[in-house]
């Protein structure tokens, strides 16, 4: 069965890009435009993994991370952001992985695979 990945990012173009690439990599995807919507999807759709942007209008990704862990700390969360300095903020250490945004999505895809134990590549 396909693993389901939730993408939370306020940039529509990036959501589209991530969904496209992760689907290509063989995952089922869904996306939320902000943290609040993302939390709803975590509750209602029970994704297998969340890719979370940090800087978003309204609730930011760090807070969203805490709330997701409060609900269910078994869901792996990948923090995906333009701000590499977030790595220094210990509030983000609760995340399972941390990926700096890049037009090369190879790192993101391989991180998601690793966390979902999908070693086989389905190109």
């Amino acid at each position: 069965m396909q693993k389901r990945v939730l993408i939370v990012d306020d940039e529509p173009h990036l959501r589209l890009l991530y969904e496209t690439e992760l689907r290509r990599a063989g995952f089922e995807t869904m996306s939320a435009a902000n943290a609040e919507q993302g939390l709803e999807f975590v509750d209602s759709m029970r994704p297998d993994l969340v890719v979370l942007d940090i800087r978003m209008p309204g609730m930011d990704g760090v807070e969203a991370l805490q709330r997701i862990l409060d609900r269910d700390n078994t869901i792996p969360v990948v923090l995906n952001t333009a701000y590499s300095s977030y790595r220094d903020n210990f509030m983000t250490w609760a995340a399972d992985a941390y990926v700096t945004k890049s037009s090369d999505l190879g790192e993101l895809v391989s991180t998601v695979r690793e966390l979902l134990h999908e070693e086989t590549v389905s190109q």
Binding site: E11, L14, L17, E21
Partner: peptide, 17 residues
């Protein structure tokens, strides 16, 4: 630089596709 990064991800990402 940060603000530029997001659009570049989209441009570069789709160009790759």
């Amino acid at each position: 630089a940060h603000e530029l990064r997001n659009p570049l991800v989209a441009i570069g990402g789709f160009a790759r596709a």
